[in-house]
Design a protein around this nucleic acid. Structure first.
Lengths: 117, 117
DNA sequence: TCATTAAATTGCCACATAGCAATATGGAAA
DNA sequence: TTTCCATATTGCTATGTGGCAATTTAATGA
Protein backbone atom coordinates (compact mmCIF):
# COMPACT_ATOMS: atom_id res chain seq x y z
CA UNK A 1 0.00 0.00 0.00
CA UNK A 2 1.11 3.55 -0.60
CA UNK A 3 2.06 5.89 2.24
CA UNK A 4 -0.38 8.71 1.71
CA UNK A 5 0.02 11.96 3.56
CA UNK A 6 -3.10 13.13 5.37
CA UNK A 7 -5.49 15.20 3.24
CA UNK A 8 -5.35 18.95 3.74
CA UNK A 9 -7.73 21.61 2.55
CA UNK A 10 -6.35 24.63 0.69
CA UNK A 11 -7.35 26.68 3.71
CA UNK A 12 -5.29 24.50 6.03
CA UNK A 13 -2.31 24.72 3.74
CA UNK A 14 -2.71 28.48 3.63
CA UNK A 15 -2.70 28.59 7.42
CA UNK A 16 0.50 26.60 7.63
CA UNK A 17 2.07 28.80 4.98
CA UNK A 18 1.21 31.90 6.94
CA UNK A 19 2.88 30.45 10.01
CA UNK A 20 6.09 29.79 8.09
CA UNK A 21 5.89 33.20 6.48
CA UNK A 22 5.85 34.87 9.87
CA UNK A 23 8.99 32.95 10.74
CA UNK A 24 10.60 33.87 7.43
CA UNK A 25 12.05 37.20 8.49
CA UNK A 26 15.47 37.68 10.11
CA UNK A 27 14.34 40.40 12.49
CA UNK A 28 11.44 38.33 13.77
CA UNK A 29 13.69 35.32 14.24
CA UNK A 30 16.15 37.47 16.16
CA UNK A 31 13.32 38.63 18.38
CA UNK A 32 12.19 35.06 19.02
CA UNK A 33 15.73 34.00 19.75
CA UNK A 34 16.02 36.65 22.46
CA UNK A 35 12.67 35.66 23.90
CA UNK A 36 13.80 32.06 24.16
CA UNK A 37 16.08 33.14 26.99
CA UNK A 38 13.62 35.36 28.84
CA UNK A 39 10.63 37.67 28.49
CA UNK A 40 11.57 41.18 27.42
CA UNK A 41 10.14 44.63 26.98
CA UNK A 42 10.01 46.38 23.64
CA UNK A 43 12.76 48.84 24.45
CA UNK A 44 15.05 46.07 25.62
CA UNK A 45 14.67 44.41 22.25
CA UNK A 46 15.04 47.67 20.38
CA UNK A 47 18.33 48.32 22.12
CA UNK A 48 19.66 44.80 21.79
CA UNK A 49 18.87 44.63 18.08
CA UNK A 50 19.78 48.24 17.37
CA UNK A 51 16.59 48.64 15.42
CA UNK A 52 13.87 51.26 15.22
CA UNK A 53 11.14 51.01 17.80
CA UNK A 54 8.40 51.22 15.17
CA UNK A 55 9.74 48.22 13.29
CA UNK A 56 10.20 46.05 16.34
CA UNK A 57 6.71 46.94 17.42
CA UNK A 58 5.34 45.97 14.04
CA UNK A 59 7.17 42.65 14.05
CA UNK A 60 5.96 41.95 17.57
CA UNK A 61 2.46 42.62 16.39
CA UNK A 62 2.81 40.03 13.65
CA UNK A 63 4.29 37.48 16.04
CA UNK A 64 1.44 38.14 18.43
CA UNK A 65 -1.18 37.85 15.70
CA UNK A 66 0.31 34.51 14.77
CA UNK A 67 -0.07 33.38 18.37
CA UNK A 68 3.65 32.88 18.89
CA UNK A 69 4.24 35.45 21.62
CA UNK A 70 2.20 36.74 24.53
CA UNK A 71 1.89 40.36 25.50
CA UNK A 72 1.48 41.69 29.01
CA UNK A 73 1.28 45.24 30.17
CA UNK A 74 3.37 46.18 33.15
CA UNK A 75 2.77 49.78 34.02
CA UNK A 76 4.33 51.87 31.35
CA UNK A 77 5.78 49.04 29.38
CA UNK A 78 4.77 45.83 27.65
CA UNK A 79 6.46 42.53 28.25
CA UNK A 80 6.57 39.95 25.50
CA UNK A 81 7.21 36.25 25.93
CA UNK A 82 7.13 33.13 23.82
CA UNK A 83 3.85 31.33 24.28
CA UNK A 84 4.27 28.64 21.65
CA UNK A 85 7.15 26.25 22.38
CA UNK A 86 6.76 24.69 18.96
CA UNK A 87 8.71 27.63 17.59
CA UNK A 88 11.76 26.46 19.44
CA UNK A 89 11.52 23.01 17.89
CA UNK A 90 11.04 24.48 14.44
CA UNK A 91 14.17 26.59 14.67
CA UNK A 92 16.04 23.68 16.16
CA UNK A 93 15.21 21.51 13.15
CA UNK A 94 16.34 24.08 10.64
CA UNK A 95 19.50 24.88 12.55
CA UNK A 96 20.43 21.20 12.74
CA UNK A 97 19.99 20.86 9.02
CA UNK A 98 22.13 23.91 8.31
CA UNK A 99 24.83 22.65 10.60
CA UNK A 100 24.84 19.27 8.93
CA UNK A 101 25.06 21.01 5.56
CA UNK A 102 28.03 23.03 6.74
CA UNK A 103 29.84 19.97 8.01
CA UNK A 104 29.16 18.15 4.79
CA UNK A 105 30.44 21.08 2.78
CA UNK A 106 33.59 21.15 4.85
CA UNK A 107 34.07 17.43 4.20
CA UNK A 108 33.61 18.01 0.51
CA UNK A 109 36.47 20.45 0.65
CA UNK A 110 38.71 17.84 2.21
CA UNK A 111 38.68 19.03 5.79
CA UNK A 112 39.09 16.23 8.26
CA UNK A 113 36.15 15.53 10.53
CA UNK A 114 38.42 15.85 13.56
CA UNK A 115 39.05 19.47 12.70
CA UNK A 116 35.35 20.22 12.92
CA UNK A 117 35.01 19.58 16.63
CA UNK B 1 22.31 29.86 35.95
CA UNK B 2 20.36 31.18 33.01
CA UNK B 3 19.37 28.95 30.10
CA UNK B 4 21.03 30.75 27.24
CA UNK B 5 20.21 29.83 23.67
CA UNK B 6 23.24 29.17 21.49
CA UNK B 7 24.74 32.28 19.88
CA UNK B 8 23.88 32.86 16.24
CA UNK B 9 25.41 35.25 13.77
CA UNK B 10 23.15 37.55 11.77
CA UNK B 11 24.12 35.55 8.71
CA UNK B 12 22.98 32.30 10.31
CA UNK B 13 19.69 33.86 11.31
CA UNK B 14 19.26 35.14 7.79
CA UNK B 15 19.81 31.66 6.43
CA UNK B 16 17.20 30.18 8.71
CA UNK B 17 14.79 32.96 7.79
CA UNK B 18 15.24 32.21 4.12
CA UNK B 19 14.43 28.57 4.71
CA UNK B 20 11.19 29.48 6.46
CA UNK B 21 10.39 32.00 3.78
CA UNK B 22 10.59 29.35 1.09
CA UNK B 23 8.12 27.29 3.11
CA UNK B 24 5.87 30.29 3.57
CA UNK B 25 3.90 29.98 0.35
CA UNK B 26 0.75 27.87 -0.08
CA UNK B 27 1.62 26.68 -3.57
CA UNK B 28 5.06 25.51 -2.52
CA UNK B 29 3.62 23.72 0.49
CA UNK B 30 1.08 22.02 -1.75
CA UNK B 31 3.91 20.90 -4.01
CA UNK B 32 5.88 19.52 -1.07
CA UNK B 33 2.81 17.76 0.26
CA UNK B 34 2.37 15.94 -3.06
CA UNK B 35 6.03 15.03 -3.15
CA UNK B 36 5.79 13.51 0.31
CA UNK B 37 3.81 10.69 -1.25
CA UNK B 38 5.96 10.14 -4.30
CA UNK B 39 8.28 11.79 -6.84
CA UNK B 40 6.42 13.59 -9.60
CA UNK B 41 6.97 15.31 -12.92
CA UNK B 42 6.18 18.94 -13.47
CA UNK B 43 3.09 18.29 -15.56
CA UNK B 44 1.71 15.92 -12.99
CA UNK B 45 1.92 18.66 -10.42
CA UNK B 46 0.54 21.27 -12.79
CA UNK B 47 -2.51 19.12 -13.43
CA UNK B 48 -3.04 18.14 -9.82
CA UNK B 49 -2.81 21.70 -8.57
CA UNK B 50 -4.63 23.23 -11.54
CA UNK B 51 -1.94 25.86 -11.79
CA UNK B 52 0.06 27.42 -14.62
CA UNK B 53 3.13 25.52 -15.69
CA UNK B 54 5.32 28.60 -15.48
CA UNK B 55 4.43 29.20 -11.84
CA UNK B 56 4.94 25.63 -10.76
CA UNK B 57 8.27 25.63 -12.51
CA UNK B 58 9.29 28.80 -10.72
CA UNK B 59 8.27 27.42 -7.33
CA UNK B 60 10.12 24.20 -8.03
CA UNK B 61 13.18 26.25 -8.83
CA UNK B 62 12.98 27.97 -5.47
CA UNK B 63 12.49 24.70 -3.63
CA UNK B 64 15.46 23.28 -5.48
CA UNK B 65 17.63 26.30 -4.75
CA UNK B 66 16.78 25.88 -1.08
CA UNK B 67 17.95 22.28 -1.26
CA UNK B 68 14.57 20.86 -0.37
CA UNK B 69 13.84 18.93 -3.56
CA UNK B 70 15.98 17.03 -6.04
CA UNK B 71 15.64 17.25 -9.79
CA UNK B 72 16.29 14.45 -12.25
CA UNK B 73 15.90 14.47 -15.99
CA UNK B 74 14.12 11.49 -17.47
CA UNK B 75 14.03 11.86 -21.21
CA UNK B 76 11.61 14.56 -22.01
CA UNK B 77 10.56 15.31 -18.50
CA UNK B 78 11.97 16.21 -15.12
CA UNK B 79 11.18 14.32 -11.96
CA UNK B 80 11.20 16.11 -8.65
CA UNK B 81 11.49 14.50 -5.24
CA UNK B 82 11.92 15.57 -1.65
CA UNK B 83 15.56 15.33 -0.64
CA UNK B 84 15.33 16.90 2.79
CA UNK B 85 13.20 14.91 5.25
CA UNK B 86 13.37 17.72 7.75
CA UNK B 87 10.63 19.42 5.75
CA UNK B 88 8.24 16.70 6.72
CA UNK B 89 8.98 17.19 10.42
CA UNK B 90 8.57 20.94 10.10
CA UNK B 91 5.14 20.65 8.55
CA UNK B 92 4.20 18.02 11.08
CA UNK B 93 5.00 20.36 13.94
CA UNK B 94 2.95 23.20 12.55
CA UNK B 95 0.04 20.97 11.66
CA UNK B 96 -0.04 19.53 15.17
CA UNK B 97 -0.13 22.98 16.65
CA UNK B 98 -2.95 24.08 14.36
CA UNK B 99 -4.93 20.99 15.20
CA UNK B 100 -4.45 21.56 18.90
CA UNK B 101 -5.57 25.16 18.43
CA UNK B 102 -8.70 24.00 16.62
CA UNK B 103 -9.57 21.52 19.34
CA UNK B 104 -9.02 24.15 22.00
CA UNK B 105 -11.19 26.60 20.13
CA UNK B 106 -13.93 24.00 19.89
CA UNK B 107 -13.67 23.42 23.62
CA UNK B 108 -13.94 27.14 24.24
CA UNK B 109 -17.21 27.11 22.37
CA UNK B 110 -18.54 24.42 24.65
CA UNK B 111 -18.24 21.43 22.39
CA UNK B 112 -17.64 18.25 24.30
CA UNK B 113 -14.29 16.58 23.80
CA UNK B 114 -16.05 13.34 22.89
CA UNK B 115 -17.54 15.03 19.85
CA UNK B 116 -14.09 15.84 18.53
CA UNK B 117 -13.01 12.27 17.98
C1' DT C 1 -3.37 69.62 34.20
C1' DC C 2 0.93 69.08 31.95
C1' DA C 3 5.18 66.61 30.96
C1' DT C 4 7.55 62.34 30.22
C1' DT C 5 8.35 57.78 28.87
C1' DA C 6 6.84 53.43 26.41
C1' DA C 7 4.50 51.43 22.80
C1' DA C 8 1.54 51.34 18.80
C1' DT C 9 -0.05 53.32 14.58
C1' DT C 10 0.15 55.77 10.12
C1' DG C 11 1.99 57.39 5.75
C1' DC C 12 5.49 56.84 2.72
C1' DC C 13 9.01 54.60 -0.28
C1' DA C 14 11.67 50.81 -2.06
C1' DC C 15 11.91 46.18 -3.02
C1' DA C 16 10.58 41.35 -3.44
C1' DT C 17 7.53 38.14 -5.46
C1' DA C 18 3.22 35.53 -7.01
C1' DG C 19 0.69 35.00 -11.04
C1' DC C 20 -0.04 35.59 -16.04
C1' DA C 21 1.28 35.54 -20.98
C1' DA C 22 4.66 34.82 -24.20
C1' DT C 23 8.95 33.02 -25.52
C1' DA C 24 13.03 30.15 -25.26
C1' DT C 25 15.39 25.80 -24.37
C1' DG C 26 15.99 20.84 -24.43
C1' DG C 27 15.06 16.24 -25.65
C1' DA C 28 12.57 12.70 -28.40
C1' DA C 29 10.42 11.16 -32.47
C1' DA C 30 9.25 11.39 -37.35
C1' DT D 1 16.44 18.48 -40.20
C1' DT D 2 11.77 19.48 -38.67
C1' DT D 3 8.22 18.82 -35.43
C1' DC D 4 6.35 18.04 -30.98
C1' DC D 5 6.23 17.80 -26.15
C1' DA D 6 8.04 19.09 -21.45
C1' DT D 7 10.26 22.41 -18.88
C1' DA D 8 12.50 26.79 -17.99
C1' DT D 9 12.90 31.66 -18.57
C1' DT D 10 11.51 36.47 -19.35
C1' DG D 11 8.67 40.60 -19.16
C1' DC D 12 4.92 42.42 -17.01
C1' DT D 13 1.55 43.92 -13.38
C1' DA D 14 -0.36 43.87 -8.89
C1' DT D 15 0.27 43.09 -4.20
C1' DG D 16 2.60 42.58 0.19
C1' DT D 17 5.84 44.18 3.36
C1' DG D 18 10.26 45.87 5.63
C1' DG D 19 12.26 50.07 7.10
C1' DC D 20 12.02 55.06 8.12
C1' DA D 21 9.87 59.33 9.97
C1' DA D 22 6.21 61.34 12.25
C1' DT D 23 2.24 61.02 15.01
C1' DT D 24 -0.86 58.99 18.33
C1' DT D 25 -2.13 56.39 22.33
C1' DA D 26 -1.34 54.77 27.07
C1' DA D 27 0.42 54.99 31.64
C1' DT D 28 3.07 57.36 35.08
C1' DG D 29 4.68 61.28 37.71
C1' DA D 30 5.28 66.26 38.73
Amino acid sequence: MSKKSPPMSPLQIKTVARMFKVLGDPTRLAILKMLFDQPLTVTEMVEALEAKQANISKHLGMLHDAGLVSRERNGNQVIYAICEPMVFDLCQLVCCKLQKDAVQQARDMGIKASALR
